[in-house]
């Protein structure tokens, strides 16, 4: 990685223009993608800290594990489908095609919405079964972490809905190419976060 090479250079020894005729960023990706990637690292710090808090809190004696509802498997499938469809949409625009782009893009968002609805139903079922937020720290963490994940997903859906409106009001798929690429990256990230959370919640 040339960043390392960079920091060992003796900058006073070389004069003149280093690099090509154009200004050069450290990464070739679009700036938005660089920013999103950094944001994803920040978001993973948030989720990791919750996970650390979860594990530390779990050690204390009043912890009663929550048996996760089986419906979560179904919800997980919805989120996987959403991610897959985003990937499909991205591949379509990446190859500068347009066929099926609307199916893939709208479908991806629709499955994400279904996932959130599914999560809400799970919450409702737990409430009805007497597992309230304050009954036990395991429950508190369950609601907190799934809620936080859903809020992140809602943030993504906001971007998705803006692009969807553009697409519906006649924009060409290539106009929202960057948006699709960023959404895809974000959705994959949230899928991974969800899988980690799911594994954590259901194994403890």
């Amino acid at each position: 990685m040339s960043l390392f090479k960079n920091v060992t250079a003796k900058p006073w020894e070389r004069k003149g223009v280093i690099g090509g005729l154009e200004p050069e960023g450290a990464f070739e990706s679009p700036n938005e993608k660089v920013a999103l990637s950094i944001f994803l690292v920040v978001a993973s710090v948030v989720f990791s800290l919750f996970t650390v808090g979860y594990i530390l809190r779990m050690e204390l004696p009043d912890w009663r594990p929550l048996s996760e509802p089986t419906q979560l498997w179904f919800n997980t499938a919805l989120l996987v489908l959403s991610s897959v469809l985003f990937q499909w949409a991205r591949n379509i625009t990446k190859n500068d095609q347009e066929k099926n782009i609307r199916i893939a893009f709208f479908g991806a968002g629709a499955f994400a919405i279904l996932f959130i609805v599914g999560q809400l139903i799970t919450w409702d079922n737990l409430q009805n079964a007497g597992y309230f937020l304050t009954s036990n720290p395991a429950n508190s963490f369950y609601y907190l972490m799934t809620g936080l994940h859903a809020i992140h997903l809602l943030g993504g859906l906001w971007v998705w809905s803006k692009s969807s409106i553009r697409l519906l009001s006649g924009a060409e798929p290539k106009d929202i190419k960057l948006s699709i690429e960023l959404c895809t990256l974000y959705w994959h990230f949230l899928l991974i976060v969800w899988l980690v959370l799911f594994a954590l919640l259901s194994n403890t």
């Binding site: 960043l3 920091v7 280093i18 944001f39």
Partner: peptide, 23 residues
């Protein structure tokens, strides 16, 4: 966080021609 993403990406991506990190 909004400001921070800006500063980091600007330093990484918006340096002018010839301006390496070590300059």
């Amino acid at each position: 966080t909004m400001g921070g993403l800006n500063y980091v990406v600007t330093v990484l991506q918006y340096r002018c021609r010839g301006l390496t990190m070590m300059r």
